[in-house]
Design a protein around this nucleic acid. Structure first.
Lengths: 241, 241
DNA sequence: CGGCGTTTGTTAACGCCGTACACTGTTTAC
DNA sequence: GTAAACAGTGTACGGCGTTAACAAACGCCG
């Protein structure tokens, strides 16, 4: 039996779930500013002050929501990855990046909240929760990169060709996280991340609409370039014209 | 005499200036959510409802603020550009992109407001003002690109090598805006924009801090790559190590 | 079972917010 | 000089996040 949980504990969990669900619905319907306490409380049959038994503040609730969304995105990328064979690194690279874009397009408000909310200027008093989520999210790409490198090394520049200031930081990063990659590969990794994030957020925020109505072909073209850069044989196919 | 303006008109202009200035200060100090009517009104010796003689709503005021910021950024880029000789296209490309980054770093709150506020999902009911601002902003890069191409063409792919879906959109864009560039060059333009925007917003939003504490060397390295892609002879110099 | 401390909820209140309305004094234009 | 246009005010409404005081429900232990 699961009755090792007291009635209180069960109720607390269901309430927490309901709160987050309603917060998510409000986020989708009205954006970050629309996530307010009273409607959330009302929806689950409580009053606003009662929510303070669950979260220290609205800010705290939002942080939890962000963590949830972060995890959802990461999970969807991992699932896409795991549908392909372990050794199909090319395929995994493609489906993971596409899963990222698909999630961003399907959930623009959530994307906005997770990726375009500055983390606080001075020294970032950001929450530990998000630290872990970001780590897990980045880990999907990072893990793919490491396997890619292990299996078939792509061309990278020698350490000496990197700006010493950059070199130092990359070395530090690799050391702190035990990443068994040469610094040049880390540089490639970051460049891929920049292009991926750049294109997706430009699309979601509408800053490409001056030129494109459908970003998909450009996204595919970018994947082709990245794949080529990584020594993968993938090319986006399109009917000749 | 400047008294062709009535006393009322003069007062109206100064009030408008004061409102925007105070709004800007609040934005910087507390972020977009901190731009509220009562403190603005108080600061210039009015009450909140009086602001409705100047703006239809808070939203309307924010839109005006965004337009102001957009223009400020564009102007700073144009100024950086115009400090270099008309034919120093390489130099102009470098200083304009650096001016963009400098402004973003110096004004993270403003950058957030201008570049990371989605323009409304369905069909974008966005204001006409912003349309013009965006046009002027993009025009700086676009103008530079056109001159670059005119002066010294860089290698681009043939139209037939582009995904037909992408090709169609690029052709449409070029036609609508009378851009005298081959479609392959437009593709390069968008790719540069993606990388520039991607790196700068990742930096401003703190989404590179997992690896880098100082993004500058990576930015310089990116500029080197872009310059090379565009057939420019610029390379970020760094002391050998 | 009885009682007690903890937990979870309530209501009331404070000081904010954007905004609408009725009203008043000043400025402008004819 | 007078009437219309304008730029303010004060008041009010409903909403917000949050705090404080209090009441009921619950879990645990003797």
């Amino acid at each position: 039996m699961n009755s090792s949980l007291t009635r209180r504990e069960v109720n607390r969990e269901t309430n927490l779930v309901d709160i987050r669900q309603r917060a998510r619905e409000l986020l989708v319907a009205e954006g970050p500013a629309g996530v307010t306490l009273r409607p959330i409380a009302r929806a689950i049959g409580l009053t606003a002050p009662a929510l303070y038994r669950y979260y220290a503040s609205r800010e705290d609730l939002l942080l939890d929501l962000i963590a949830d969304l972060y995890d959802e995105l990461t999970t969807s990328m991992e699932r896409a990855r795991d549908e392909l064979a372990r050794d199909d690194l090319t395929g995994r690279f493609i489906v993971v990046t596409r899963a990222f874009r698909r999630w961003a397009r399907a959930h623009p408000r959530e994307f906005e909240l997770v990726f375009a909310t500055p983390v606080g200027d001075p020294g970032a008093p950001k929450d530990d929760r998000l630290e872990g989520c970001g780590q897990r999210f980045g880990g999907v790409f990072q893990g793919l990169f490491v396997e890619l490198w292990m299996h078939q090394q792509f061309p990278v520049v020698a350490d000496e060709q990197l700006d010493p200031r950059l070199r130092r930081q990359l070395r530090q990063w690799a050391a702190d996280n035990d990443i068994p990659l040469p610094l040049g590969a880390l540089d490639v990794f970051l460049t891929c991340w920049v292009r991926l994030y750049g294109l997706i957020s430009l699309e979601v925020f509408g800053h490409l609409s001056f030129a494109l109505t459908d970003v998909e072909p450009m996204f595919d073209a970018m994947l082709s370039e990245l794949a080529q850069r990584l020594g993968l044989s993938w090319r986006a196919e399109f009917s000749a014209g």
